[in-house]
Amino acid sequence: MSPKLFLMPEMEMEIIYSFILIVSSLMIYAKTKEIYNLTADKGIKYFRQAFLFFAIAFFSRMIILFLFNLFGISRVFDFSPRAVGLISSIFFVYISTIAIFYLLYSLTWKKWDPDSKLVWLIYLVTLIITFIVISTRNGFILLIFQLGLSLIALGISYLRYLKSKKNKHLRNNLIIYALLFIFWTVNTIQLFIPAFLGMFKILIYLISIATFLSIFYAVIKRTG
């Protein structure tokens, strides 16, 4: 299998798409630095960490897709030598799952004992999930797990919205998180089940970009 040194048109689209999401995630991380330094608030801390991990995960996703293009393969486990595919997938599954966990934790951290070792438990559970996904080579496990986390987060946002007597801020918050969790999961799955997005790929990419940019806009509106 000879490496392709030119980029397929689809690859160019992937790079632009990934670049927008990486930059917007890093900008969210950078723009919230000041209010975090000022408050040392844990919710802000986990929110920032989620976007830092989103940026790293999207960067690794871009690299993996670039390698797909280079070696003319379409599945992460088809890499030769196999170690390349294995290391890339372990890294990506781990980082993307941690990102979702952190976002979920930023919504729920007040409910937990501040001295609990929940963050370590998150790392441990993520390691176990990564091990299961990689050893079984089954992307559906990752899909189910990440969608499950997304549904929990959506449930929390929805209950909070109902409890607040349909507060406008929380409604917007609910919509943004719903889109973010769903499209993040769909993006993650694309590496393991390439045909998953099918003909809706461009539409999903556009909605993903709109979601990240709307979060970025909401962040700069409040942080200046």
Binding site: T32, I35, L38, T39, D41, G43, I44, Y46, F47, S106, L107, W109, S157, R160, H169, L170, N172, N173, Y177, A218, V219, R222, T223, G224
Partner: peptide, 12 residues
């Protein structure tokens, strides 16, 4: 005010 709005907006 901006800090509390931020926290409220994102449900943190």
């Amino acid at each position: 005010k901006n800090i509390t709005s931020f926290i409220e907006d994102f449900g943190l």
